[in-house]
Amino acid sequence: MPANPASAVDRKPRLVSPKADPTAIDHMIRAAWAYYFDGKKQSDIAAMLGVSRASVVNYLQEAKARGYVRVTMHPEVFVEHSLSQELADAFGLTAVQVYPDGEDETASLKRVARGAADWLPRLLAPGDRLGVSWGQTVFEVSDAAADTPIDDMTVVQLVGSQATPLGFAAETCSANLARRLSAECVNLHAPLVLSDAGLAKQLSAEPSIARQLEAVRACNKTIFAAGSCSAVSHVVASGVVDEAGLQDYRARGAAAVICGRFIDASGAPIPGEIDARMIGVTLEEMRGKEMGFLVASGPERASPALAVIRGGYATHLATCTATARRLLEQAA
């Protein structure tokens, strides 16, 4: 008996590549739509397309890899989490989301960044001016963000640009989020740290830079991370301060870094000569915002995050289980 053509089709899983034929691309899109929007079973989709179930699995994986499909959990699930409520109550925060730990710190950071990226648009409204910091954590959030247009939205770079071994600059974080939110982007076209305080003052007075700094001050919401004061701190790796400078700040009680500026364990600023050489948001300007969205992942970030919270810079927190528990232990 001759083989049934339908059963013979695609016995091996069909992988979709960038050079795939139009039929394969069409199958991928149809499979994703049927599975995620119509709720059809994979076996039913296979029969509909005339392919194997293994091929359907590959189509769905490829659709997610290309960003055609994005699977999310509703943020309220995490707000209801007991750790979230404990943290909010303990520190007087408006809202907290705690995400499950990954298999290592990198995986945990990815989870927290993805969760924060999904939560962020729900915290924004038309007309908002969102100030965006920099660093690995904020970059991961911006990289994980989905396209979520918000009317009359402005995204503002909070600190000047600085070379970093991580492969991105401050403007990358703000530009990524502006693109995802379909927002106007105000980048700060100046270095974060200059060699001379007089030069920094002069450059800040330039009309174009002055307008950008005014946009920084006008932000009603911010998203940022709490930098550490360890030897591997981002401020050292990026050259904001050298190791000797970091040791001086630590000797004076530095516990965390916000946008390149140092604070102690209570959140009070620790002044230094570098402040006059910096172009970007000040610590005073970071306080009292309608929303200060702190993203922190990793037990070593608990102490910096605690300093930031105690200083009144944060209203919202996205973190992982291990960091949440460490925060509660340190606050006890």
Rank of each mutant, 00 (worst) to 15 (best):
M1D: 09
M1A: 13
N4L: 09
N4M: 09
A6F: 09
A6T: 14
S7L: 13
A8V: 11
V9M: 13
V9D: 08
V9S: 14
V9Q: 13
D10H: 14
D10S: 15
D10W: 12
R11A: 15
P18D: 06
P18R: 04
T23P: 00
I25W: 02
D26C: 01
H27I: 00
I29T: 10
A31V: 05
A31E: 00
A34N: 02
A34Q: 05
F37D: 06
K41C: 01
D44M: 12
D44F: 10
A46N: 09
A46I: 09
A47T: 01
A54L: 15
S55A: 15
V57D: 15
N58D: 14
Y59P: 01
A63F: 06
A63K: 02
A65Y: 10
F78G: 05
V79N: 10
V79Q: 14
V79F: 15
S82P: 09
L83S: 06
Q85C: 07
Q85E: 14
L87T: 13
L87V: 14
F91Y: 15
L93E: 03
A95N: 12
A95Y: 04
V98T: 08
P100N: 15
D104E: 04
A107G: 09
A107Q: 13
S108P: 00
K110F: 03
K110P: 02
R111H: 07
V112A: 05
A113N: 06
L120Y: 00
P126G: 08
G127N: 02
R129P: 00
G135S: 10
T137C: 09
V138Y: 11
D143H: 15
A146K: 13
P149R: 10
I150C: 06
D152P: 00
V155L: 12
V155W: 07
Q157L: 01
Q157D: 04
V159L: 05
E171G: 13
N176E: 12
A178S: 11
L181M: 08
S182K: 09
S182C: 05
A183N: 06
E184S: 14
P191H: 03
L192D: 01
L194D: 01
S195M: 07
D196N: 14
G198T: 06
A200C: 03
Q202Y: 10
S204V: 02
P207I: 11
I209T: 03
A210H: 08
R211P: 02
E214F: 01
V216L: 08
R217V: 09
A218H: 12
A218F: 07
C219Q: 09
C219P: 00
N220M: 08
A226I: 05
A226K: 09
V236R: 01
A237V: 11
G239V: 02
V240A: 12
L246C: 03
L246N: 03
D248L: 08
G253R: 01
A255R: 11
G260M: 11
R261W: 02
A265E: 13
P271L: 01
G272Q: 05
R277H: 01
M278Y: 08
R287N: 03
G288I: 00
G288N: 08
K289A: 01
M291Y: 03
M291E: 02
G292R: 08
F293Q: 07
S297A: 15
G298P: 00
E300C: 04
S303P: 12
L306T: 06
A307M: 02
V308N: 04
Y313H: 11
A314Q: 04
T315G: 11
H316W: 12
L317W: 04
A324E: 00
A324K: 11
R325L: 11
L328A: 06
L328M: 04
